[in-house]
Design a protein around this nucleic acid. Structure first.
Length: 569
RNA sequence: UGGGGUGUAGUCCAAUGGUAGGACAUGCGGCUCUGGACCGUAGAAUCGGGGUUCGAAUCCCUGCACCCCAGCCA
C-alpha cells in the first residue's frame, strides 16, 4: 500500500518486523490483525491502527492482515457496529480477503484452553463478589491478599467451571481466575479474571453461552490461533503484556505472537474515545455517528474527506511511543492536497448579492468556457451561462473597502471569472441601509476576462447567472470543540461537553450554484472556487433540493490579512 | 509513597556516539483569470544538573515533568 517517501527511515515497529524477518523469528512470516470491538463506530484513531497493520502486512512478502472482531462482551456489542466497521475498513481501502474472524468463533476453543489452564492448576473458580474481589486485590501501593477460594482442588474447579458454563449460577456468583501472584507490583497480574458469567444474548452466538472470556485471555489466544506474528496495540495495554505472555506460556498454544505497543492518535479540537463519541450521539449533540463534524470515518466520509487523504495523513504522522496530539491542520493539509488535484472546479455563491450589469442586453445569454481543473488538463472545460443579472458573494463587495481589499467597491473594476471585466457604478440599499443590490457596467471588449489594452485588475471573482442558478443548502462545519484539548476544563465540575463549539454547524440556504451542478449526485466532491471543497450530502441531498457539505475551506489569505489588521488596529 | 512507559522547534516524526533534518503551522518574497494551487526563503527544538568521550539527542548517574494500570470493559 501507500509507501511513504516522506519518511525513508523505519518506525520502531517496522524495525522490529524487519529484524524478526532477518532472524527468521516467525519463520519468515508477517501476520498482523486489526481487532476492533464492535461497540462503536471507527474513528480516525482507528484509521491509524488500520493503516499500520495493513501496511506492514503489505510491505512484507506474503504478509497478511486479518480483520478480527473482539466480541467478548455481549452487553455492549451490536451487529450495527460490525457492519459499519467492515464498511469503513473497506472504504479506507483495505482488504482482509477471506480473513474475517470473530473472537466469538473461538469460544469453544477458548473454553477448552480455560479447562486446560484449570487442569494444570493455573486457574481457579473464585466465588468472591465483585466488591470483595476489589478489596482483596489491594491497591497500587499495597499487595493484594489471596482469595479464600484460591486453593480449591482441580476437580472442584473443573466441576464448578463446567457448571458455570451449564448455566447453573447467576451472573456474578463465580468467576474463573488465573492463579498468578496477588502480591505482584503489577496489579493486572493479581489473579486476573479470565471468565465471567453473563446471561446475555450475544449478537452472534445468541444464547449458546452464558460465560464469556475476558480480554487478556481472549486476545492473546486469538492472536495465537491466527498465527499473528506482531500484535500491535496501543500504549494502555503495555502493563498487560506480562499477562498476554503469561497466558501463552502456560498453555499449549500454536504460536507466541509479540505484542508491541504504540501511542494512540490524538487530534486537536476533537475527542477520539468511543465512549465520549457515543455520548455525543446519544445526547443528540450531533446528528449521529456519521455527523460530518464527527471524527468517525463515516462522518469524515460524509463530510467529503477521501480515503487517500486519510491514508496519507496516517503515513505522515508516523508511529512512536510518546503521547502526542496531532494538529488537525495536518489532516486538513492532506485533504486539501488530495482534493486540489482531483476536484472539479465549479462556481457557487454561498451568500448571494444581486448584481445587474446595466449595459448588458436584457435577454442575452452567453455560454462561456470555464476550466474544470487547472491542476488536471484532462478534466477539460465546461460552459457557464452569463447574463445581465448575476449573483456574487456578499463579502466580495465593500462600500468602504479596508486597505488591501482588492475586491469590488464603487468605481472599481474587477474580473468576473471566465467572463468580463466589470466596474461597479452604484449600490441599492434597503430602508436599513443594507446593500441589497449593486449595479455595474461591463466592458464588451474583455470577453473571456482579458482586456485588449492589457490593463490589469487586482481581483477575480466567482459569480452565478441569476436566472440559471440552481438553489442549494450548504452546510459549513467548524471544529466540534473550541479547545485544542476538549478534555481540559477550567471550571470545577465541567467536562468535555462544556467545550463543545456552539458554532460548529452553520446552515446556509438559498445558495446559488452554476447550472452544471444540477447533474451532481450525492457523494460528488467539488471545489467551489475561492470557497473550499464541498461534497454533496449522501443522506439529505436530492435532485431539486441539493445539500452540500463543506469538507474544508480553501486557505484564505485575505481572511488572514483582515484578521491581522483588526488585531493591530 | 508500587509497577510500566515517555520527554527533540508551536505541532507530529527523524537522526541508532560524528554537520540536529523533514512535514504541518507561522513570517516574508515570487507567480497567478481562484487572495487557491505552485515556487523560493526565513525564524524556530534536544526537560534540568552532573559524568564518560576528541566528540553525547544518543552511553552512565541524578533530579524533574507528563501518560497508563487497582472492570466480573476492551
Amino acid at each position: 500500500m501507500a509507501e511513504s517517501n516522506d519518511t525513508p527511515s523505519l518506525d520502531f515497529i517496522r524495525e522490529i518486523v524487519a529484524r524478526d524477518q532477518a532472524s527468521g523469528k516467525h519463520g519468515g512470516r508477517v501476520a498482523t490483525r486489526f481487532p476492533p470491538e464492535p461497540n462503536g463506530y471507527l474513528h480516525i484513531g482507528h484509521a491509524k491502527a488500520i493503516c499500520l497493520n495493513f501496511a506492514i502486512a503489505a510491505e512484507n512478502e506474503g504478509g497478511t492482515c486479518n480483520l478480527r472482531f473482539d466480541d467478548t462482551n455481549p452487553a455492549k456489542e451490536e451487529v450495527e457496529y460490525v457492519d459499519s466497521i467492515q464498511e469503513d475498513v473497506r472504504w479506507l481501502g483495505f482488504d482482509w480477503e477471506d480473513r474475517l474472524y470473530f473472537a466469538s468463533d473461538y469460544f469453544e476453543r477458548l473454553y477448552e484452553f480455560a479447562e486446560e489452564l484449570t487442569r494444570k492448576g493455573h486457574a481457579y473458580v473464585c466465588s468472591l463478589s465483585a466488591e470483595e474481589t476489589r478489596e482483596y486485590r489491594g491497591t497500587l501501593t499495597e499487595p493484594g491478599r489471596n482469595s479464600p477460594y484460591r486453593d480449591r482442588s482441580v476437580e472442584e474447579n473443573l466441576d464448578l467451571f463446567r457448571r458455570m458454563r451449564a448455566g447453573e449460577f447467576e451472573d456474578g456468583a463465580h468467576v474463573l481466575r488465573a492463579k498468578i501472584d496477588m502480591a505482584s507490583p503489577n496489579v493486572t497480574m493479581r489473579d486476573p479474571t479470565i471468565y465471567r458469567i453473563r446471561k446475555a444474548t450475544h449478537h452472534r452466538t445468541g444464547d449458546a453461552w452464558c460465560i464469556y472470556p475476558m480480554y487478556d485471555f481472549t486476545h492473546s489466544l486469538s492472536d495465537s490461533i491466527e498465527g499473528i506474528t506482531q500484535s500491535l496495540c496501543t500504549l494502555e495495554f503495555e502493563a498487560r503484556r506480562p499477562l498476554y505472555n503469561w497466558v501463552l506460556e502456560h498453555l499449549d498454544v500454536p504460536s507466541h505472537p509479540q505484542q508491541i505497543e504504540f501511542a494512540r492518535l490524538n487530534l486537536s479540537y476533537t475527542v477520539l474515545s468511543k465512549r465520549k463519541l457515543l455520548t455525543l450521539v446519544n445526547e443528540g449533540r450531533v446528528s449521529g455517528w456519521d455527523d460530518p463534524r464527527m471524527p468517525t470515518l463515516s462522518g469524515m466520509r460524509r463530510r467529503g474527506l477521501t480515503p487517500e487523504a486519510i491514508r496519507t495523513f496516517c503515513d505522515r504522522i508516523g508511529v512512536a511511543k510518546r503521547d502526542s496530539v496531532v494538529s488537525v491542520a495536518q489532516l486538513e493539509h492532506a485533504v486539501r492536497e488530495d482534493l486540489n488535484l482531483r476536484s472539479p472546479r465549479v462556481m457557487g455563491v454561498l451568500n448571494p448579492l444581486k448584481v445587474v450589469i446595466e449595459n448588458y442586453p436584457e435577454d442575452q445569454v452567453e455560454w462561456l468556457d470555464a476550466v474544470n481543473n487547472p491542476e488536471d488538463e484532462s478534466a477539460g472545460t465546461r460552459k457557464v451561462p452569463f447574463s445581465r443579472e448575476l449573483y456574487i458573494e456578499q463579502e466580495d463587495f465593500r462600500e468602504d473597502p479596508p486597505k488591501k481589499f482588492f475586491r469590488l467597491t464603487v468605481g472599481r473594476e474587477v474580473r468576473l471569472r471566465y467572463a468580463y471585466l466589470v466596474t461597479c457604478t452604484s449600490v441599492i440599499k434597503d430602508d436599513q441601509g443594507n446593500v441589497i443590490e449593486i449595479r455595474c457596467s461591463y466592458d464588451p471588449e474583455t470577453k473571456g476576462g482579458t482586456a485588449p489594452d492589457g490593463r490589469k485588475v487586482k481581483s477575480t471573482m466567482h459569480w452565478v447567472s441569476a436566472s440559471h442558478a440552481v438553489d442549494a443548502e450548504i452546510r459549513l462545519y467548524d471544529r466540534l470543540f473550541n479547545r485544542e484539548n476538549p478534555n481540559q476544563v477550567d471550571v470545577e465540575g465541567h467536562d468535555f461537553h462544556d467545550n463543545l463549539n456552539p458554532d460548529s454547524l452553520e446552515i446556509l440556504t438559498g445558495c446559488k450554484l452554476e447550472p452544471s451542478l444540477a447533474e451532481s449526485r450525492p457523494g460528488q466532491r467539488v471545489q467551489f472556487e475561492r470557497r473550499g471543497y464541498f461534497c454533496e450530502d449522501i443522506k439529505d441531498s436530492k435532485a431539486g433540493s441539493l445539500v452540500f457539505n463543506r469538507t474544508v475551506p480553501l486557505r484564505d489569505t485575505w481572511a488572514r490579512i483582515e484578521k491581522a489588521g483588526k488585531q493591530h488596529g
